[in-house]
Nucleic acid binder design. Sequence first.
DNA 1: ATGGTTAAGGTACGGAACGTACCCTAATTG
DNA 2: CAATTAGGGTACGTTCCGTACCTTAACCAT
Lengths: 206, 206
Amino acid sequence: MAGDPMRRSGAGQTRRRGAALEEAILRAATDELAESGYAGLTMDKVAARAGTNKNAIYRRWPNRLTLGVAAYRRLATTTPPPDTGDLRGDVLELLRQANRYWSSPSGAILRELLAAAGGASELLAQLQGRSGDAAAAPWLTVLGRAVARGEASPEALHPRVATVAIVLLRNEFVMRGAPTAPDDVLVEIVDEVYLPLVRRRGPVPT
Amino acid sequence: MAGDPMRRSGAGQTRRRGAALEEAILRAATDELAESGYAGLTMDKVAARAGTNKNAIYRRWPNRLTLGVAAYRRLATTTPPPDTGDLRGDVLELLRQANRYWSSPSGAILRELLAAAGGASELLAQLQGRSGDAAAAPWLTVLGRAVARGEASPEALHPRVATVAIVLLRNEFVMRGAPTAPDDVLVEIVDEVYLPLVRRRGPVPT
DNA sequence: ATGGTTAAGGTACGGAACGTACCCTAATTG
DNA sequence: CAATTAGGGTACGTTCCGTACCTTAACCAT
């Protein structure tokens, strides 16, 4: 704790301004977030780590949560959607990706932030590129190929339908409080719900 | 704010103990929760309102969250599942009930608590009688009748399938941060996802 | 160049709450 | 009636957010 990380006031009085300082703060915040999670992200620590003080932070972000969200966005990474050649494989892989992410450190932070953002829908939107739409993209991609192969019904391309699987998985996380879901659950979601739903449907009996 | 709600130290030194005191605390906590939400539930206020002090509280509940959950459980009420005679009507009504509840004060508190409970799965379980199972009950009831009428496939009685609609709605709340979902969304969930999923399915084309 | 404006830095503080410690006193129990 | 248990009063340590205020460096325009 006697460390002096990134201190800048040693030698000359060179003083960062504007974008450079903003970068430094955001970088410090991101590092703190990665190390200690959102709960451990304190304004004082971020200021210290960036070698500045809280004023500089509050001039840019109105409060801790906003800074946390901004910092999180640097941690978020996107993976290209899988292409295993059949729908079931793709869907399972998408769910497994999500499962891994949520149990990863980044996922834990995302959960903290979602909890803290509570009703602030503006911030929620920033945590997922526009909430629904960006999250739906890989599902639509995967389903689009399945439709082309004749594996899935074109009606399945409705976003609400397409994302059913990931929504169920998310619910599993939220309700069970566990950072990861057993693989059985993923398989169950796919086989009991998702595939029956999107598969080409035969004529509905009257 | 000069009120003296429930003060007991006026006349005699009659002093509550055990169950009586516990009741008083829980009652005070419930009232505070209803008035100010979980964010506004402070240990000092609860103690003041119950006419006691924080010691008595901490002797019974280890922290604020636990007390909050305990207090919430007195607010929770259950409504009997609807019986409109057809599946679509029942399902829509169940969703509308949920929609109303989440936009109600109690629902707001539940959301706060779910957020605060975060990873504490033990507490989460208390917020819904065993998380999944109790929440599934009305859906199974309604679906059971539909199966008997030949409206739904028996496979739909799988809990994961049966609860798909409410899970989607819950997701809507969480992701959009809104306290209430437009009725269109409920209808869409029912018509695009739920009914196609649970309805008797014809032969699947190979 | 130079003087004025803007933004950083340092520091201290107010305020809210949680959770704890300590000691006094009423209720209960043997 | 003595001893033990549990409440009551109160104060405090801590943490951390957000703000205020002043000093000083960097930038900019004339």
